[in-house]
């Protein structure tokens, strides 16, 4: 099958891959460039564990044609931290026990990041709405919503980063 070259930026780095016609972004990320942070859960766009940002917008990688990402920026949970410094959302997820098995966490974080990037102080309802396409089967949604609210409140404070590491 003929393959198409596709170039895009992944977490700030240039990537070039050959993709099959109709191949989805999730497969390209996982098998093509080795970023395993986005997961396969349903392949139908219903569970949200493959959520990544394409040009800052949350997208379901399993339903996104890889070829449509040419020339665009893709962000995944692997690129969320700033070197060793965790993103406030990551710190808040740790502090609020907002992950148990962890399988939905990458997608949750990216959906939450998209929200906070466009709305720095969301209401609880807005947070719930933002993660309504992301299914968690372990911890329930309350700790996750609490973590996102807390991250929004602390964002820019900066002091919670060290605390997050200290607890590991």
């Amino acid at each position: 099958m003929a393959k198409t070259p596709v170039q895009f930026r992944l977490n700030g780095s240039d990537k070039a891959v050959f993709v099959d016609g109709g191949e989805n972004l999730l497969n390209v990320l996982r098998r093509g460039v080795g970023d395993m942070s986005a997961k396969y859960g349903c392949g139908q766009g219903t569970c949200g564990v493959c959520t990544v940002l394409v040009d800052g917008e949350p997208q379901l990688a399993c339903l996104t044609l890889a070829e449509t990402c040419a020339g665009r920026s893709v962000d995944t949970a692997l690129g969320l931290s700033d070197g060793p410094n965790l993103h406030p959302l990551q710190t808040a997820f740790m502090e609020h026990f907002a992950a148990q098995c962890g399988f939905c966490t990458s997608g949750m974080l990216m959906a939450a990041k998209a929200l906070l990037d466009r709305n720095a102080s969301p209401t609880r309802e807005e947070v719930a709405e933002a993660i309504s396409g992301n299914i968690c089967r372990c911890t329930g949604y309350e700790p996750i919503i609490n973590a996102i609210m807390d991250a929004a409140a602390k964002r820019g404070g900066g002091s919670n980063r060290e605390q997050g590491h200290a607890r590991v």
Partner: peptide
């Protein structure tokens, strides 16, 4: 803190398919 929590929030936890 859970010992696997840092892996979960950084997307580095390896499941069987990773």
């Amino acid at each position: 803190q859970r010992q696997d929590m840092l892996g979960h929030v950084t997307g580095r936890t390896r499941y069987f398919d990773d």
